[in-house]
Amino acid sequence: MAKSRTVILFWQLAILAAVLVIWQWGFEWSKALLPRAYVPKILDPYFVAKPSLIWQSFLRLGCFSDTAGFTTCIKGNDNNLWLATLVTLKNTWWGFLFGSASGIAAGLILGRSDFLARVFGPYIVALNSIPRIALVPLVILIFGLGDLSKIATAWLVVFFVVFFNTFEGTRAVDRDQIAAARLLGASEFTVLRTVVIPSALAWVFASLLPAVSFALIGVIVGEFIGAERGLGKLIIEAEARANASEMMVAIFVMMFVGILLAVAVRSLQSYLLRWQPQFEPSA
């Protein structure tokens, strides 16, 4: 028999609580109880901070605990937590949007044309085998330290993932469905619009979920290497000051941003693919 939802929820909360407790007090307890050689270094707050410190850093970076008041604090720091999150989110979104739009367009065009697929095939394979991260310094050199270079990095990462899936999806369209559409009077363009695209959509979406995470990775890496603002910049600054709790704040915020984007893509997916059995609206 399947465990009930409450039992599952109980264990999930229990694990969370255990992790937080060990994180918070584990290092002190083990220092007090264990011989020095056995104290786990991994729990040292110097490296991993601890929940209470992270919370304090969150309040400080988020301008909640500033004596000058929220607004003054926000205005005083041009890479405060909120602005940094906004910048990273915005660049991720545009990189994801441009990357997936161009990936879908290129995938559809090459998927529908044997000639173009054969001409461009080797180039795409060659470009795809370059580790994208290796291009980031080049991108920053070209587009500067601003937002544009981050969007370009995210685009680079997203484009190929979406392109390959769209291409395969376009190739996998049922030939009889295309024939049926033609026999019902559809032109080449109508076939593309009403048969090829909806049919390839399942494949496209299979790539959009990883693509949105990749876009975030691309932006963060871009911010590591050279940026004026953003969550990645926040981490690099905190590292320079050996401030683990501030890094952790940025990491947790990224986690929430990642979840937010994934949920957005997934709900769009389950709406557009509602004709598929696995996306049946659950009761």
Binding site: A180, T194, Q276
Partner: peptide, 14 residues
Amino acid sequence: VGYVFQRDTLFPWR
């Protein structure tokens, strides 16, 4: 001409 296939060629997304 109208044509009816043996295989199911309905558009599953419609």
